[in-house]
Write a protein that binds this DNA or RNA. Structure first.
Lengths: 182, 182, 182, 182
DNA sequence: CGATAACCGAGACGGTACGTCCCGTCTTCTC
DNA sequence: GAGAAGACGGGACGTACCGTCTCGGTTATCG
């Protein structure tokens, strides 16, 4: 029953987005009772998130070829591709949006998705820092916000397009700095 | 009447957040009819945004002392201060959240707030680029995402704290790059 | 809209009885919103009663031919005919049943139906008492319970059948007493 | 287990009335499973009735002193006392109310309570009829409705109060008739 | 200056979804 | 192997807002 509900939730979410995502419609689609849903998920956002990640489970493994710049670029290009090439972008944006007024969803998103991702990235960065490639005084968490956070920014506040070139620029800018070399 | 409605909207928004922000409650608070509100605002998000900026109108002028790094740091520190020191942070986060499923609000936010801000920042950056301080191959819009976008990231997905040090790190990282100098 | 709702309520009540009488179904049948119903009726029983009497409005005028015994018999025979010959019997029984746990309905039933009926009967009886036909020490309200109340008893607790003969017996017993004349 | 369930049912019924009488709450109170209850009682009304009579078991034996009028008066006064002096009145009213839409309860009430009571009364009356005190053409079942039925009427449709005097009047009216003696 | 139009408050209305409660059935696990 | 524990689909409850829609009464403009 849990599986059926999650499946129905994912189907509804991908087909119609959070705007039409309703506990009643999920229950109907899943042939389940609303009570059953309320028993297991604290909010509709939490259900949407759970349904989304259970079926989609984007794996985006983090490459480590030794060339940090290439690895980061590859990862970010893939991330941008996911956000723009599939319906994942809209769904993630709507989930994050919902999370702003749904603490349960916010917590779930953090524990389930965003924290582990940050950690993966930090680990990869730390290896380069340990090998002396990156400066030792750099707070690697900040780096994450300047790369992936920048992508989320363009996803959520789409003033400017989210392109592969954007992903490449992010890495290049941050690696080499903006200042004209002396 | 417009003024009264905007005032009521702002009061409600600051007092209870988007979760309780309802056109009916705004109408009641303002002593206005719902029809009047619908006549002037296309969605509750647009009203919330309008109410917020009409009363708060954060001005955050962009300094230009000639020292780009200092100017950016000052600006970002002030921005972080706004987001964390007042109720503006929560309100902005909830507005952006709402905008994910409210196209009217998204457009309004873009035209009214985020685009002009980007442009101000880009102009300041361009002056430094023109003067040769910044590399000429840098896309300045990307820089905006790597500074302000990173702040929004920590606002909307608060895995990591949004501190003054974070703001300083953003500028330093990006200006000088992460790579260990040869 | 009130009229449409009352009509729908009456149709549902007569067609399916109180068991299926649901505010949601009335709303659906009437093409009305549940809120509209809740705005005007304090309970589903009150709505059922209102719907019932608005459309049925049993008039059962009280005859006064001068012959009390004949008048009472005629009235009671007609009453029994209404209770057994139409669907009114079941509906009234269910309304009274519902009223046992629905104070709003109980009050409505009393003011709207049962009190005026008692009064009509008492008036007719009083005329006979004034003319000396009935003993002056008789509490006429008690008489009502011994005639109509007895019918309700057989309606609500159907151990014994509710027949025309029963109606006739009620009047005869009470008029002449049970004791063997000396 | 049966005993525990009946006890819980009775406690709940007396404490909160039929409005809050729920199979789930009885199960919880009794520490029993709902299945167990459904195995033994066909409806919640049947359970309520069973619980009520198992613990209360009003005995109200029927006196026979040879003086019919005194016996009937004593019995009815006691009956009215039960209905008004204890919580039995409300419970019985609610049970009869529930029975209007619960056939299982209606049947149970009839077999368990109302039929035997009628029979007791009829037997007492028949003895007086056999002894020539009562007229032979009187249908004794009708008499029951004109005495006890009248009390139920005032219980279920409380337009007029249910008093000891009422009980006395019932007997006197019916015994002696209403007509002014010639 | 008085008629006439626009505007706006008030709030009713059909809807949709909410989150809760209880029904009657069922499975599971324990004693 | 009976029974507690409780999950489950179903359906109604009463509430909150949505966005649309009349109503009147008050302004404010124009004849």
């Amino acid at each position: 029953m849990r599986a059926g509900i999650l499946d129905a939730a994912a189907r509804l979410l991908l087909a119609e987005g959070m705007g039409s995502f309703t506990i009643e419609r999920v229950a109907e689609l899943a042939g389940a009772s609303k009570m059953t849903i309320y028993k297991w998920w604290p909010s509709k956002g939490a259900l949407a998130l759970d349904g989304y990640f259970t079926t989609v489970e984007a794996t985006l493994a983090f490459p480590d070829t030794g060339d940090l710049e290439a690895d980061l670029t590859a990862q970010l290009v893939a991330f941008v591709g996911l956000l723009t090439g599939t319906s994942a972008g809209r769904v993630i944006a709507e989930l994050i949006g919902q999370a702003q007024t749904d603490p349960e969803l916010a917590a779930a998103y953090r524990h389930r998705y965003s924290s582990p991702r940050r950690e993966l990235a930090v680990e990869r960065l730390r290896r380069s820092q340990d090998s002396g490639q990156l400066r030792h005084d750099v707070d690697l968490q900040v780096v994450v916000d300047q790369l992936w956070g920048a992508c989320y920014h363009r996803l959520l506040l789409p003033d400017q397009p989210l392109t592969e070139q954007f992903a490449r620029d992010l890495v290049h800018n941050l690696m080499h700095g903006l200042l004209t070399p002396p």
